[in-house]
Simulated scan of single mutants.
Amino acid sequence: MKGYFWGIGSVILTTLAQLCLKAGVTILPEFKLNHQWMDVNWLLENLPAFGLIFIGLIGYVLSMVCWLFALKFLALSKAYPLISLSYVLVYLFAVTLPWFNESATLIKFVGVVFILLGIWIISRPEVTRK
């Protein structure tokens, strides 16, 4: 049970990290890898975007800590499918939150159903035969 707690924590943090990174780079104006990064005014003007990106990166670090604990307590065959829930959650948030402006389509929905079906199949208790 402890492993599932850490696994779900990793899923939630990964989902939040992905959403923060997407929101941050979306509001960041077009940039190039040049002197622009040395312009303090440009950096300050875009502080909210960099803040979201930073929060996303911190979310990934915390997610990895949770993931390490999940791996300590869960079999890899149980833990790894669990992390796929983050794909489902990111999709659901992306199509429901208006600022992401993502479209929900039948093919995407079918993909989510396949992910959930795969998680269900792998997470079922193993039947031992005598």
Rank of each mutant, 00 (worst) to 15 (best):
R124F: 04
A49I: 14
D39A: 12
L85H: 11
A17S: 12
F54H: 09
G111S: 06
L68Y: 09
L85W: 14
L106W: 15
G24C: 03
V65I: 15
A104H: 13
K108Y: 03
T26M: 14
Q18K: 13
G111N: 01
L19A: 02
K108G: 02
S103R: 15
Y60G: 05
W42N: 05
E102D: 05
S86L: 08
N34I: 03
S77Q: 13
W42C: 00
I27Q: 06
Q18M: 01
M38A: 09
L33W: 06
K130N: 11
E45I: 10
S10M: 07
V40Q: 01
M1A: 13
W99M: 03
I121M: 13
V95T: 12
E126W: 06
K78A: 06
L62A: 06
F109N: 05
T15N: 10
G56Y: 05
T15Y: 14
W42P: 11
F73I: 03
V113Y: 13
V112D: 02
I12T: 06
Q36Y: 05
I55Y: 11
F5D: 03
A49G: 15
Y91W: 14
C20S: 10
V113F: 15
R129G: 03
L76G: 10
L82P: 11
T96I: 05
L68E: 09
T96A: 07
I122G: 08
M64L: 06
I8D: 03
L74R: 08
Q36R: 15
S86F: 06
L28Q: 05
S10G: 01
L44P: 01
Y60D: 00
V65S: 07
I55M: 12
W99C: 04
P98W: 05
S77R: 15
F73E: 00
W99A: 00
V88W: 14
M1C: 06
V61I: 13
G59T: 04
S63W: 09
K32H: 12
F73R: 01
A23K: 14
L68T: 08
V112K: 11
L19Q: 09
N41R: 14
T96Q: 09
L71N: 06
V88P: 11
W37I: 06
M38Y: 15
K32F: 00
G3I: 08
F31H: 15
L16K: 00
L62I: 04
L106T: 14
W6R: 02
